[in-house]
Amino acid sequence: MAQLPQLDMQKMQMVQELEIEMMSDMYNRMTQACHKKCIPPKYKDAELGKGESVCLDRCIAKYLDIHERIGKKLTQMSMQDEDFVKRMQGGEQPKS
């Protein structure tokens, strides 16, 4: 944190805003997905049924779980990729 120069404050803010936007996008997608999977399109009753409620709870827990898992794997893979690219560039300098 202390190492970051003053200029990066703006960048940090941009990253934060991007993160918030990403979160809300994820939230909307999750809502859509869990609605589709848990609420049958028969609207005899305006109340959430017990089965529907339980389904929603599980759906959300699972969605967030998967979100986290994929994020971890993705960062891991992109880090490997970066390493690979760096090594390639280190080995063959004339190529740009």
Binding site: T31, A46, E47, L48, L56, I60, A61
Partner: peptide, 15 residues
């Protein structure tokens, strides 16, 4: 509509 609102409430609570 009503059910969707209730579902939204529940989802935001869990989230």
């Amino acid at each position: 509509m009503e059910k969707y609102m209730k579902m939204n409430q529940r989802i935001s609570q869990r989230f």
